[in-house]
Write a protein that binds this DNA or RNA. Structure first.
Lengths: 298, 298
DNA sequence: TACCTACCATCGGTTTTTCCGAAGGACAAA
DNA sequence: TTTGTCCTTCGGAAAAACCGATGGTAGGTA
């Protein structure tokens, strides 16, 4: 059972340890010196320990006193954290923030913003979901996250508020070693149908919406980087975000496919949004993160 | 700056969270129910937050309330630790305990005892020194450790209190592949002088006392296990604790040397002691550890 | 040595806080 | 509707903290 001692006593204790004397501590805390004396006396009595050696001119911490000062600091840090969390909540900062990011969303702006976020809101617990394509939107609807960075296809749903962050160009690519790469001209849809297409999908939902499917044979991936590995290995073709594959195209490892009469070619580039549910507005911290990421993309 | 809220308020908060209602908390804490109400009210007012949703029949934690309950638990754990440390000191348990162990001391009894120690004295910071041979005694004298498990050669110094833990038999051994191993009879001292002896010594002190030296060529080791590696590699001979090399002798990797007219053969086996400085008695935790290790050896 | 200053403990008196019991309103179950 | 449980509010009582004054002690200084 925890006894009855107060945070105030601990604060007095560390003030003395910092200032070196009871009087100095009393000045720092704007209190009478006798108050300091009494606080320490009750602290010592309730725990039955001796904190200071008063034999000399100025009080010296005993060894147990020094240890307890350390622990008192720890208690006060914890209490101070309690306070700042309360202050956060008073200011409308949500205590925890859950976000989700689709695999197609470029990682660097998000990572940079999150790093800044952790410095700005050290007490906000940030939960992070990084799952298969389309999952971010799903988690948003399930209220498991309050903010999602994702694609929204084919259009922005009415129940979501979405801020456009960027657009990414998907281009069909294949490894230089792949048979499709040897065709130097436009590839017919018939030819492409017989080759494996590496498609992104989320793990569970086999009937999740899919766009840009051309091949009959599809290998499914949750992780776009793993798909890139297979792509580089020459095991199939797929559409990839331009910025992810440019270095490989320049090095010759990948080549861009020209698909005959490609219905996706006329489509606008894929939009990346920051989205939240309309009736559940995000808190201060969420808005801050949203704006930070918008700036990074802008 | 830390405001003025009390540990008591936090305790009330978690009591309510645990029991599910203000009244139940009041019963648990043996206080009037109005007191609970007021404590929470002041806690809410001083921080400007709302902890409970009172609209229903029984109070429900708000989201910020739930977060603050968690943090309150953390503060109380820290405070409770403060208390137990104070109780330790009252009972004469030293706040931290520094010990040193010589490389020749068998590790297992020490490790087992230390594991038990950590369970028995979770708040005692245990500092551990594991250095070259003879260093433990040195650290004891420098007051850097208060307890040492070590050999004391040639005899127990007057200023130390030593409890004999065990005796270990040192036997001269060499790898089966080593030239000395091919001599099937007693090895003469002249023969042995020309081979490398692998000796334990502490790193710094080149003139530290050495015993049982026979060879002219010596390779020095701080770590007995590394010396064992070299020994097994056939790079020299040395005396090893019997229990460390028995498995290797049985497997044939090492063979015991019979040294002609060995002055060390008549010596009693090496004694392992637990020692501390006479005028600086060890505290409760140290005595406990000492007795635990004595029992393990006994 | 004597003095002076800075330091801490102790003691009443006062102020502030906390606690209790009673009264009152809200909600749910019977 | 009644009953029981729960929370809030309020005034008075009890406890705790705070202050200022006083006195004793250790170090530094003339």
């Amino acid at each position: 059972m925890i006894g009855n001692f107060t945070l105030d006593q601990l604060r007095v204790l560390v003030a003395i340890a910092d200032e070196g004397s009871f009087s100095a501590a009393s000045r720092r805390l704007r209190r009478a010196q006798s108050s300091i004396s009494q606080a320490i006396a009750t602290l010592e009595n309730t725990h039955g320990v001796c904190l200071f050696d008063r034999s000399g001119h100025r009080p010296l911490l005993t060894t147990t006193g020094a240890v307890l000062v350390d622990q008192a600091r720890s208690v006060l840090r914890s209490a101070s954290r309690f306070e700042s969390m309360a202050a956060n909540s008073r200011a409308g900062v949500e205590p925890e923030l859950s976000i989700a990011i689709d695999p197609l969303v470029p990682a660097k702006p998000c990572i940079d913003s999150i790093v800044e976020f952790s410095g700005r809101f050290p007490d906000v617990v940030l939960n992070f979901h990084n799952e298969g394509i389309g999952r971010a939107e799903l988690l948003l609807r399930r209220q498991e996250v309050s903010l999602a960075f994702c694609t929204l296809i084919p259009t922005v749903p009415i129940d979501l508020v979405a801020h456009r962050l960027a657009e990414i160009q998907l281009i069909p690519v294949v490894a230089a070693s792949h048979p499709l790469a040897r065709i130097n001209k436009t590839v017919s849809r018939l030819e492409i149908e017989s080759h494996v297409q590496l498609v992104l999908s989320n793990s569970m939902d086999s009937n999740s919406p899919s766009y840009g499917l051309l091949s009959n044979r599809r290998w499914r991936f949750v992780d776009i980087h793993r798909r890139l590995d297979f792509l580089l290995g020459g095991l199939g073709w797929c559409r990839m975000p331009e910025n992810m594959v440019i270095p490989y195209i320049q090095s010759g490892a990948l080549v861009e496919l020209k698909i005959e009469d490609d219905p996706n070619e006329k489509q606008p580039p894929l939009n990346i949004y920051a989205a939240h549910v309309r009736d559940r507005p995000v808190g201060v911290a969420g808005r801050w993160l949203l704006e930070a990421i918008q700036n990074k993309f802008g």
